[in-house]
Computed example of a mutant assay.
Amino acid sequence: MQELTIYRLLLVDDDPGILQLVAQILSPYGYQITLLDQPDKFWETLEETNPDLLILDVELFTTHQAKNIKQVPLSGFDLCQVIRSDLRWNRLPILFLSAHTDVETIQHSFAVGANDFLNKPIVATELQTRVRTRLEQQQIWKFTETEALGW
């Protein structure tokens, strides 16, 4: 009997509405979904959840404590580059979601290491298909690497 794999997804977006929409679209597929709307807690959440796929907004905001609380932009591009340079996380599939649909943004997403890019507003069937495809490709890659090592 084959075991059912429950994939873990980490969704990072500073818009709680987008997080809820993505979770609603993907939850019928049995994924374990973690929503993060506070990018300053990214690394802690990444370690805790150990996701199989990361869905990341291109433009994030983080609140810094100062005299006045203000939101400071944080780039999903920057996070992606750091992830790609980290030996533990560099093969984590990353799918960008963005309202920025210009060619430069899309090309830059792939240049910093994204595996996929989807436009906002989100098309449910496209998101479902892309997530499933990325997870299946990751499983094939893991299986192939394990076989090559003779495990």
Rank of each mutant, 00 (worst) to 15 (best):
residue 3 E to Q: 15
residue 3 E to Y: 09
residue 4 L to S: 12
residue 4 L to P: 08
residue 5 T to I: 12
residue 7 Y to P: 10
residue 8 R to P: 04
residue 9 L to R: 05
residue 10 L to Y: 04
residue 11 L to Q: 07
residue 11 L to P: 02
residue 11 L to G: 06
residue 13 D to W: 03
residue 14 D to W: 08
residue 17 G to W: 08
residue 20 Q to S: 00
residue 20 Q to T: 08
residue 20 Q to I: 00
residue 21 L to F: 05
residue 23 A to K: 05
residue 23 A to I: 00
residue 27 S to A: 08
residue 27 S to L: 08
residue 31 Y to S: 03
residue 35 L to M: 09
residue 37 D to P: 05
residue 38 Q to Y: 08
residue 39 P to T: 07
residue 41 K to M: 05
residue 41 K to C: 00
residue 41 K to E: 11
residue 42 F to M: 00
residue 43 W to A: 10
residue 43 W to Y: 07
residue 47 E to W: 05
residue 47 E to T: 00
residue 48 E to A: 12
residue 49 T to F: 06
residue 49 T to H: 08
residue 50 N to S: 12
residue 51 P to E: 05
residue 52 D to V: 01
residue 52 D to Q: 09
residue 54 L to Q: 00
residue 56 L to S: 08
residue 59 E to M: 13
residue 59 E to K: 10
residue 59 E to C: 12
residue 62 T to V: 14
residue 65 Q to G: 14
residue 66 A to D: 14
residue 66 A to K: 09
residue 66 A to I: 15
residue 67 K to H: 12
residue 67 K to W: 14
residue 68 N to V: 07
residue 70 K to S: 13
residue 70 K to D: 05
residue 72 V to G: 08
residue 72 V to E: 15
residue 72 V to A: 15
residue 74 L to G: 14
residue 77 F to K: 14
residue 78 D to A: 12
residue 80 C to E: 04
residue 82 V to D: 15
residue 84 R to P: 07
residue 85 S to V: 00
residue 85 S to W: 05
residue 86 D to V: 00
residue 87 L to Y: 12
residue 90 N to M: 04
residue 91 R to L: 12
residue 92 L to K: 01
residue 92 L to R: 04
residue 93 P to T: 01
residue 95 L to Q: 01
residue 97 L to S: 04
residue 98 S to Y: 02
residue 99 A to D: 10
residue 99 A to Q: 10
residue 103 V to W: 10
residue 103 V to Q: 15
residue 105 T to F: 10
residue 106 I to L: 11
residue 109 S to M: 09
residue 114 A to S: 08
residue 115 N to S: 06
residue 116 D to P: 13
residue 116 D to A: 06
residue 117 F to I: 04
residue 118 L to D: 01
residue 118 L to V: 05
residue 121 P to I: 12
residue 122 I to S: 02
residue 123 V to F: 09
residue 124 A to M: 03
residue 124 A to T: 00
residue 125 T to I: 07
residue 126 E to F: 06
residue 127 L to D: 02
residue 130 R to M: 03
residue 131 V to W: 02
residue 133 T to L: 06
residue 133 T to I: 11
residue 133 T to C: 04
residue 133 T to M: 06
residue 133 T to K: 09
residue 134 R to I: 11
residue 136 E to T: 13
residue 136 E to L: 14
residue 137 Q to H: 14
residue 137 Q to I: 10
residue 140 I to C: 13
residue 140 I to F: 11
residue 142 K to E: 13
residue 142 K to R: 13
residue 143 F to T: 15
residue 144 T to S: 03
residue 145 E to G: 14
residue 146 T to R: 14
residue 147 E to P: 05
residue 148 A to F: 07
residue 150 G to C: 04
residue 150 G to P: 02
residue 151 W to Y: 15
residue 151 W to Q: 15
